[in-house]
Amino acid sequence: MTSRFTSQNKTTQQRLSTHTVGLVALSDFRKRRAEVIEQQEREARDAIATGTPLDTPERSRTGTPDDNTDVSNPRKKKKKEKKVAKGRGAKLSFADDDDENEGDENSGQGGDEPKDGEESGEKKLKFKANSSVSVVPRAVTKAALRREAAERETLRREFLMRQEAVKLTEIAIPFVFYDGTDIPGGVVRVKKGDFIWVFLDKSRKVGADLGVGEKANARREWARVGVDDLMMVRGNIIVPHHYDFLFFIMNKTAGPTGKLLFDYVSEVSESTLPKRSVDEQAVKSASTQPAVNSLEGALDDPTFTKVVDRRWYERNKHIYPASVWQEFDPEKDYQKEVRRDLGGNAFFYS
């Protein structure tokens, strides 16, 4: 018979020694060991449910360390054992009681104090104006809006006045008639706001007055010539009729050689601004016109501006210098262009 003082529950090692007799493979041993541990845990749960005391297997006996046990820190291990003992109702004394109590008191004192994050979360944040910003926005009121609208209107009128003054400013353009050779043509007076065809029409009248041409009835021939039959060649650029001089002056358009096509001033001085309306200023300027030699551009090189018969150009456009003339293209950058002849050969001179 079994002694009553003998434990009825076998340890893990005892059960393994019974169930692993004759095993050879390590996998079989692990499988049996897992089954034994599972059986012991099941018996422990049943004993707790029925209230029967049972010597449950400990993790230390199975060789499997507890997940919550930190082997490297024996201090935490002792504290855990103390908590387990208190849970079972045993009054035990440990040497670390004083240390733990001090830690609890410190933690209690620290827990009563609110954290920075909690304190900042409870208080409402107040934003103040940035004093480093130099520009202070103005209040948008009806009076401020009317004042800004009046200022814009004043600036718009001043700009239009200046633009009209620039357009009405007269300039002088010396030129030559060209039919393979330079024929002196004189100087034409135009305004910066005039179109190119206005200059060609005045040059046609100059040609008729001078009788330019080899024929005896040159004046009659010039009378038959229309503006569309003439071309203005500025440098090597054929300027279209529908452009005005102000376009080239304001944009400072340069030709292939880097020289401005129309090098005139794009602004007017305060003394020359019109004080009266445009019509009155035009009448006044018509009655008291300055001499053409005193106008801006009167001393320019006349050979830079050529008046050419379009029919002559169509017959000789394959011959130099007409072969290098090209019609003006506002989208083209002539400064980056490589000048070439009709055969595609690049010019090595400016």
Rank of each mutant, 00 (worst) to 15 (best):
L295I: 04
F177W: 07
R146C: 05
N130Y: 09
D228G: 07
G121D: 15
T50R: 12
G117I: 11
W325A: 01
K83H: 09
G344K: 02
A34Y: 04
F199H: 03
V268G: 06
V308K: 00
K124A: 15
S132R: 12
A322D: 02
F247Q: 11
G111D: 14
Y334W: 03
T154G: 14
A298W: 01
D46G: 05
R33F: 09
P65H: 11
T69Y: 12
K78G: 05
L155M: 12
E118P: 00
N293R: 08
L168H: 15
T272Y: 06
A286K: 15
S27D: 06
P65A: 15
G297I: 00
Q39V: 05
K205Q: 08
L273C: 04
V233N: 00
P290C: 05
V338Y: 03
D112G: 07
N345W: 02
P184A: 14
E331M: 08
P321Q: 02
E38W: 04
E38G: 04
T11P: 00
E327S: 12
F127L: 14
G180E: 02
E337H: 10
S269D: 15
K275N: 10
A282S: 14
D228Y: 07
P65W: 10
G180S: 09
P65E: 14
R45S: 09
A286T: 07
N9K: 08
K115Q: 06
A208F: 02
M231S: 01
V278Q: 11
E43Q: 10
A291N: 09
E58I: 07
G297R: 01
V176W: 00
D96S: 10
